[in-house]
C-alpha cells in the first residue's frame, strides 16, 4: 500500500541562553508587546483553590539551571483541556535557578475508554544545551500514578517517585527536576 509521502518536521534547535529576549522580553528590559504569554494559567484563581509549586532543575553537575524556560500545560478541575486556559510560561531565576508557579490542582481527565487518568501537570523545558525540549509530568499522588493506565506495565517502578513533588502541605509543593544521577527524572517522548 502506498502512503502519501510525508514532509519531515523541521528539526529542533536549542533555545539558547538568551531565550528571554523572545519569550519573556520584559525580563531583559524590552517592553514592546501588549502582554507576556502565560503569565497566569487561569483567570481569577481564588486563594481557596490556589496551589504553589516551586523547584529547581539540576544539571548533571548538580548545579541548578539558571537559564531555562518551563511551559506548563494542564486541564481544569473537571479534567478538561481548553485552548484558552491551562498554559503558563515561567523561567528559572537568573541567579538562583528557582521557578515558581501558582495554579490550581488539575482534575482527573477522562480516558478514551471512560476510565479516569491520574491528575498531572505537563512540564515542557528548554534551555541552552538542550537540543530538544525535555517533557515530564508532575503527578500528585504515587498511588494515583501507579493506577494510571498510560503507565501500566512499564518497568520503571523504582523511578516513578521522580514524578511526585515533595508535598509541604495541601497547597504547597516542591518539584525538583534532575537531568542525571540517582534521582534522574523520567522524561517522556511521544
Amino acid at each position: 500500500m502506498n502512503e502519501p509521502k510525508k514532509l519531515i518536521d523541521t528539526p529542533s534547535q536549542t533555545a539558547g541562553p538568551f531565550l528571554h529576549i523572545g519569550c519573556t522580553p520584559r525580563i531583559t528590559g524590552i517592553n514592546i508587546f501588549k502582554s507576556e504569554l502565560g503569565l497566569i494559567p487561569f483567570q481569577d484563581i481564588s486563594d481557596n483553590e490556589a496551589i504553589n509549586i516551586k523547584g529547581k532543575i539540576y544539571d548533571g553537575n548538580n548545579e541548578p539551571i539558571i537559564d531555562a524556560m518551563i511551559e506548563t500545560w494542564q486541564c481544569d478541575v473537571n479534567g478538561n483541556y481548553s485552548s484558552n486556559q491551562g498554559f503558563a510560561r515561567i523561567v528559572t531565576d537568573l541567579k538562583t535557578g528557582e521557578y515558581q508557579l501558582k495554579t490550581i490542582r488539575p482534575g482527573n481527565k477522562i480516558n478514551t475508554d471512560g476510565s479516569l487518568s491520574a491528575s498531572y501537570i505537563t512540564f515542557w523545558i528548554v534551555a541552552r544545551g538542550m537540543n530538544r525540549p525535555l517533557i515530564t509530568r508532575m503527578y500528585f499522588l504515587e498511588n494515583d500514578l501507579k493506577n494510571d493506565l498510560v503507565l501500566n506495565n512499564i518497568k520503571i517502578e523504582d523511578r516513578l517517585n521522580t514524578l511526585i513533588p515533595y508535598t509541604e502541605d495541601k497547597k504547597n509543593f516542591i518539584f525538583n527536576i534532575y537531568l542525571q544521577g540517582k534521582k534522574e527524572t523520567i522524561f517522556f517522548e511521544f
Binding site: T14, G60, W73, S82, R128, G129, M130, V150, Q180, E184
Partner: peptide, 28 residues
C-alpha cells in the same frame, strides 16, 4: 556541543502514546 553533555538525561526517555494533554494546546 559541550553544554549538552550535562544538560541531557543519561537514561532513555519513556515512549508513551499521546493523550489529550499532548493533542491539545493553547491558542493565541
Amino acid at each position: 556541543y559541550k553544554s549538552s553533555i550535562s544538560r541531557s538525561p543519561n537514561k532513555e526517555p519513556l515512549w508513551i502514546n499521546s493523550s489529550s494533554s499532548e493533542m491539545s494546546g493553547p491558542l493565541f
